[in-house]
Design a binder for these strands. Structure first.
Lengths: 135, 135
DNA sequence: GTCCGTGCAAAAGCTTTGCAGCCTT
DNA sequence: AAGGCTGCAAAGCTTTTGCACGGAC
């Protein structure tokens, strides 16, 4: 599910650039705090507020997304190609799944409702191979 | 996505019984506070803590679920049959969609990953007919 | 009689925001 | 020069938790 960019103009900021780079460089679907910790050495005066503010801007620009995975905190990702999530019930890890996408289900739902459907999000729940091995 | 009940035994409580009844009686996918306000006249000493504690128990019993709809607060539902959600981007309302279910996509995903898939959740995003009419 | 559930209030998390100064434009 | 962006800190909101008491079993 991609959010449409607002078209609003933003100024350049080094912090935002790096937040996006770090977000793009990881597969861990991190939290704001994780990004903060990661960038703190580079920006010793960085504040969490800045991370949150920039994440909001990146989301508005369509460059990042917030993931609702049932945790008490928000997680983020910068991947913009359509993909789904595999969420592990045991360890909470989130894995991307991009091998298959089902655009046709939007059409199927559209037929039986007057809701104006833009897109969908699918999350698969289960246990990851690491957790399976351990039990 | 249904969570498996833990099998734990719980004592009877009038508050919990009523929370479940009220949750079952509404289609609004309410918040904890909404349930609290709804039941406060009936239990003048009711506390929010009790609502949260009982919601957690109901979820553990498999009688309720938490919904992650991108808001800053949790929303709940008591519907247990498999269904999807239509989430309105404008007003935030959540609608159930039970007319069609796609169990086969679990199988499709299973084939291309070693993740042990139990089930999935789908949320459709767009605008509801009310909001469409207004704009 | 036990010990779980409740009410109350405090605490805990995560996220947002007001403000003054700095940096981009 | 104007106004967004930042750091800092305080505030805000939702959810959780400790404790003493009352009710379920």
């Amino acid at each position: 599910m991609k959010q449409k960019p607002s078209g609003k103009h933003y100024r350049y900021s080094r912090q935002r650039e790096r937040i996006l780079e770090v977000l793009r460089s990881t597969e861990s679907h991190p939290t704001a705090t994780w990004l903060y910790d990661k960038l703190k050495p580079e920006f010793p005066r960085l504040s969490l507020g800045t991370v949150y503010r920039n994440l909001a801007i990146l989301i508005d620009l369509g460059l990042a997304r917030k993931i609702d995975a049932g945790s008490t905190f928000d997680r983020f990702e910068a991947k913009t190609e359509p993909h789904y999530h595999l969420i592990c019930r045991k360890c909470g890890k989130i894995f991307d799944f991009g091998a298959r996408f089902f655009p046709e289900i939007d059409e199927e739902i559209r037929r039986s409702t007057d809701f104006d459907i833009e897109g969908h999000r699918i999350d698969f729940f289960g246990t990851c191979s690491d957790c399976n091995r351990k039990s």
